[in-house]
Design a protein around this nucleic acid. Structure first.
Lengths: 230, 230
DNA sequence: GATAGAGAATTGTTCAACAATCCCGCAATC
DNA sequence: GATTGCGGGATTGTTGAACAATTCTCTATC
């Protein structure tokens, strides 16, 4: 290398696309997706033999994938008993909301990245459209994207990843409720208010409203959760 | 079980002590410790053969341990090249401080768990004693415990674990600086002020001081980091 | 000094084996 | 009738060897 080439950074950005992922990671990817979309419901046991045969990978590779997802808290590993799709307790849900509240309200209040506000607005719009057409699953997805966008205001890659993980985990809670589809709809109005306040630059007020959202949503979710099989 | 026995919960709490850990986890434990205390410095490559022979475990088990630590961001895994002790960039350090600021200031401001304030005070005391006796390594440890105690005010097991992980990661930064020993000492006074404010119940003021701490510490650390081999 | 290629070393993945542990059903016991 | 003790079968935990894929190293070459 004669000097730092200007195009080097450009190509470096594409490095990730270069298929340099192990099979264990790809296996983890499909399992994660299946857990998130509910095909593998909480409590399900994943035996090494069945899963390995189904995905056509060796037991060792599968175990590597399992470890990954255990670390992400989507699976739990019981020694000599196997791995299971995690079943959240009511306390788990409460804690999940507690840390979300911390991250999201702080991100909104500090709001280091005003350029990311439009993404918040877009997520709210998607949710409203989905609700109008009664696509409840999409309403839920849009709602999660809304909160992801709020956390993203912090401008921290790491907060972003943490949020992604928290929301994936939260899906576990919805999958054991009897009517998860309509859980998010009531909050669409509140989301809209928060987004408008942010667009208007009123961060402190937006943070306050968000705090109120958490009070309401947490209480309702935990109640619904306890009732329907928590 | 005729009914839910009263002592069952008591024993359940001790379940963790029951040695139910895999060798992979134990291997991860010793590697983690070695990384944290600096015996394995950033950039070091851990070959499967050497490490496996040294710890007397098979390659498969070792790879499981590696995965664990990669997920904790203490190691990085390069496909077909091996695993290395992570080298933090200046941007990594900045992001680390950003999320710490979010978590700690929120925890202090909300302070759901006043009963945990004494732990904060104790950590400051330990730091002061260590500084008086010029045990700089212990000053650093006490400082980390101070911040861990601040985050613990949130009363969330999950925040606690996140903090532990963040601080472990931060050790990686100190290990590449030329004089990490004395980095924490200047902040002892500020720590004391924050602890006193908290003991006095003045949470909002404590949070403000903490915010100031982050401004100072981050700037100084990043500067020192960039200079000494960042 | 830079480049290309051959050979060595290392990682990625699979497979087979055995030990350790758990699960389930059945008999024995109180 | 409920609990306990005890097998046999199934599953996980861990190891070792094997081979493919990739990277590293060193030398020859220009």
């Amino acid at each position: 290398m004669t000097a730092t080439d200007p195009w080097a950074d450009l190509l470096a950005a594409d490095r990730a696309l270069l298929d340099r992922t192990s099979t264990a990671e790809r296996v983890a990817d499909v399992l994660r997706q299946r857990i998130i979309d509910g095909a593998l419901s909480p409590g399900t046991r994943l035996s090494e033999e069945s899963a390995g045969k189904a995905l056509a990978v060796s037991r060792n590779t599968l175990r590597e994938a399992f470890r990954l997802l255990v670390h992400e808290r989507l699976l739990v590993h019981e020694f000599h008993r196997g791995v299971f799709v995690r079943v959240l307790s009511a306390d788990d849900v409460i804690d999940l909301y507690r840390i979300r509240r911390l991250l999201e309200t702080s991100a909104v209040r500090r709001g280091e990245n005003p350029g990311l506000v439009p993404a918040v607005d877009r997520a709210v719009g998607d949710g409203e459209r989905a609700a109008a057409e009664q696509r409840w699953w999409d309403v839920g997805t849009a709602n999660m994207r809304f909160h992801e966008a709020l956390a993203a205001l912090a401008g921290s890659p790491r907060v972003n990843e943490t949020m992604r993980q928290l929301l994936a985990e939260l899906r576990l809670a919805f999958h054991v409720m009897s009517r998860p589809e309509q859980f998010h709809a009531p909050y669409l109005g509140l989301n809209r208010e928060i987004a408008d306040l942010l667009t208007d630059g009123q961060r402190e007020e937006a943070a306050a409203k968000l705090d109120a959202y958490f009070d309401a949503a947490e209480t309702q979710l935990v109640a619904a959760y306890r009732e329907h099989q928590g």
